[in-house]
Simulated scan of single mutants.
Amino acid sequence: MPKVLLIDDDTELTALLSEYLEEEGFEVETSADARVGIAGAADQSADIIVLDVMMPRMNGIDALQRIRRLGDVPILMLTAKGDDIDRISGLNFGADDYVAKPCSPGELVARIRAILRRAGSRFGDENVLHVGNLILHPAGRTAQWQGKPLELTGAEFNILEVLARNAGQLVPKQDISRRAFGRALTPFDRRIDVHISSVRQKLGTRGDGTSWIRSIRGQGYQLVQEL
């Protein structure tokens, strides 16, 4: 089981990402303090470190430099959206990749698997999701439907991945939002409904004319399992 050391002071996000990573087969250790995280990195038990840039007491860039002096463990940086300076600094100081926050848990897992695969880790194998005629490649973030490439936006892929991992089950909209976008759904937020509508059009209808994605008003959505 690959071990992820997650260093981030955002406790709500850390809890969400930890739960998702564990469901994906990772062992997770967390730290809200960069200095404590560095101590955890020193024992070299982690297969990859996910490190937030913006933290109190010691920022992620300083922590990155110290961890790099300890060894060559792969490091994925979490940066503020649109902050090119942090991204460039992180890469220059030895980060393997970065993800802009807010990020979806699915995207984070895909980046982690890709980094491990490039590093030659035995844990980098891609976990392909196969539900009937639907095939999702989370690491490459590509999809196939009925034997043909399925063109999806990033948000659409995130949502369809959540539904595919729970095929045949009702997934509450709040759960979809947290897993697909890494944040809670706010009142009157219709973004999930809009993305679902687009995915439905791309999948087409079943033989009886119904959608492959069922909706239960006020509750959530369900990907039909009998594909």
Rank of each mutant, 00 (worst) to 15 (best):
P172W: 01
A164D: 13
V99G: 02
G147E: 13
A114V: 03
N133E: 15
Q169Y: 13
G106S: 10
P172F: 00
R183F: 04
V171N: 10
I115W: 00
E151H: 09
T153Y: 08
D189A: 01
I159F: 06
I112D: 06
N166I: 03
L108I: 01
V131E: 15
R141E: 08
K101V: 08
A164M: 03
V99S: 01
F181M: 09
I112P: 01
A155L: 07
R111A: 03
T153G: 15
L170F: 08
A143D: 12
H130F: 13
V171Q: 12
D97N: 11
P138A: 09
W145P: 00
R178S: 00
D125Q: 08
L150H: 10
N166D: 14
A155D: 15
L108Q: 05
L116H: 02
A100N: 08
T153V: 03
L185K: 15
A164H: 03
L152I: 07
L136H: 04
V162E: 10
L152T: 09
A139G: 13
H130W: 12
Q174G: 09
A155C: 12
N133Y: 08
L136F: 04
A180H: 06
I176T: 07
E126H: 11
G132W: 01
N127T: 15
G140I: 08
R190P: 08
L129M: 14
A119Q: 10
I135T: 13
A155E: 14
S104W: 00
P187V: 02
V99L: 09
T186F: 05
V128S: 11
A119F: 01
G120T: 03
G124C: 10
Q144T: 02
I192A: 01
G147V: 06
R191M: 07
E151I: 11
S104G: 09
I176V: 10
A155K: 13
W145C: 00
H130M: 15
V171F: 10
P102A: 04
I115F: 00
E161Y: 08
N127K: 13
A164I: 02
E126R: 04
L185Q: 15
L150Y: 05
